[in-house]
């Protein structure tokens, strides 16, 4: 599957920017997300470029000239050491885990293909990431870091969480987005307030 198709053809959550669904504090927070892309402060240049390539496979955006930025926000989180409030007993501290995990993926790519991860075909990249997810890895590169745990709980969770924090992602899934102070009035099955996304029915259109 390489093409993306959304049933929300005309909906843009940002059209509500100046409506009662958005308040000043929410506008400020989303404005910062859209405009203030953080600079690289934690990852090395190599790790940053590798993570860009990984994020492009975990959350591909081939139809966008300017993809939703993901890596700058992961770097920012690591720079601030803003963890989730826990770490699994079998994992090293968060920052160490990221260094170790990214370097291990780079080593896996060189070991398997004699090339760096960024140079692999999308198919080879996906195959390698799938192996990491399912712990089919060379333990000498990973040492005490569980590959699958790193993949799911740190890498994938961050990439996905950052993507779906972006208004472009809210629009493509038909999410109402910020809703204070107005909220919603119609709550039942197939009920839609005028300020919610309208879903296009491809099948009905086809028929």
């Amino acid at each position: 599957m390489s093409e993306f198709k959304t049933p929300f053809l005309t909906y843009d959550v940002l059209d509500k920017w100046d409506t009662p669904s958005w308040n000043d504090q929410t506008r400020a927070a989303v404005r910062q997300r859209l405009d203030d892309e953080p600079p690289r402060r934690f990852l090395s240049e190599e790790q940053w470029s590798l993570l860009e390539a990984i994020a492009a496979r975990l959350m591909p955006q081939p139809e966008r000239e300017e993809p939703v930025p993901i890596v700058p926000w992961i770097d920012d989180m690591l720079h601030r050491n803003a963890g989730p409030g826990y770490r699994y007993a079998d994992m090293p501290p968060m920052r160490e885990a990221w260094h170790q995990g990214l370097d291990a993926i780079a080593a896996e790519a060189r070991n398997r293909h004699g090339k760096c991860f960024e140079e692999l075909s999308p198919g080879d990249q996906d195959a390698l990431l799938g192996d990491v997810q399912h712990n089919r890895v060379e333990s000498r590169y990973w040492r005490d870091l569980p590959a699958g745990g790193f993949f799911l709980h740190l890498l994938l969770k961050q990439v996905v969480g950052i993507y779906y924090s972006h208004p472009a992602a809210w629009s493509e899934i038909g999410f109402g987005g910020p809703a204070s102070p107005r909220g919603y009035a119609r709550l039942g099955f197939d009920e839609r307030d005028p300020w919610e996304a309208e879903e296009f029915d491809f099948e009905a259109e086809h028929a």
Partner: peptide, 23 residues
């Protein structure tokens, strides 16, 4: 999205497409 990624191991275009059924 995190729940689908972590519990179903779903990622890539498959996840992005699945997310359009959120409503």
């Amino acid at each position: 999205a995190e729940a689908q990624a972590i519990n179903r191991g779903m990622w890539g275009m498959k996840l992005r497409q699945e997310m359009t059924r959120y409503n």
